[in-house]
Design a protein around this nucleic acid. Sequence first.
DNA 1: GTGTGTGCAAATCTTTTGCATTTTC
DNA 2: GAAAATGCAAAAGATTTGCACACAC
Lengths: 139, 139
Amino acid sequence: MNPINSIFDGVLKSNKYSITKQRKLIFDKISELAPVSLFDLINSLKEIDRSTIYRTIDLFIKLRLIKKIDIGFKYNIELSELFSKHHHHFYCSKCHQIIDFDEPSGLEELIYNLANKYNFKSSEHSLEINGLCSNCQQV
Amino acid sequence: MNPINSIFDGVLKSNKYSITKQRKLIFDKISELAPVSLFDLINSLKEIDRSTIYRTIDLFIKLRLIKKIDIGFKYNIELSELFSKHHHHFYCSKCHQIIDFDEPSGLEELIYNLANKYNFKSSEHSLEINGLCSNCQQV
DNA sequence: GTGTGTGCAAATCTTTTGCATTTTC
DNA sequence: GAAAATGCAAAAGATTTGCACACAC
């Protein structure tokens, strides 16, 4: 068995979840297509019910087998840089508070160098940091 | 008139859009609550129809009066770091291609220093860069 | 065999659209 | 008064839930 599948089996088993045909198919399809949207995943697995896919994705995320990557379609809204300085956010995963912070020094340069390296023309960037705010750390 | 409202009026006027009661109310509410979700915005402006709010948000974004900030609820899916090295993404806004790149050197340190400064405990971060990939630049 | 997982159908929530009416300039 | 913007109602799309049956262990 290849190492990816053996990690997959191991994580499910050690957390007492069954290894089912559907879970394997979904995981394999994600491996194949990643990064993939839920829409594409559902459409490429017509033989599996949507609700099973949703439930399975939730499970895989809980088990940290997969992760979501933001592509900017679900969001909160704030005023643009016409009104306020460019900045980034901490997102507290406990109290859901969003804390602004200034563009850190060095980030622009870092992105500039990176984009150059990959021959990419950068127009915007976002840096989001998740974790615990100072209040929520003390419990 | 305060400077924020005068920028607001100016941007609408110079782009030949009317200044309506609804647009003002929506903009003021965003200023007040930002960062705010569409759900909260709709619920705090019951007197305005949902569809007007959706259309207005699209307009404000087009005019760059407001912006969306990703908070990680709409997404693509990829395998977690159990299977692959931590990395980030370029997102090409033209061909929608996603290009992976390695964790850039210096970013971890930058985040570490930042989090310290704000007394925040960071567990994850994401850096997404939007722009044009090398193919799409040549048109 | 037992309990977990899946499929199905329906419900709920989110976003979009067409069109008649109202408002802005 | 003409064009743009809004409200309403309905459609379309995305996600969740309850329950009966099927499958993994």
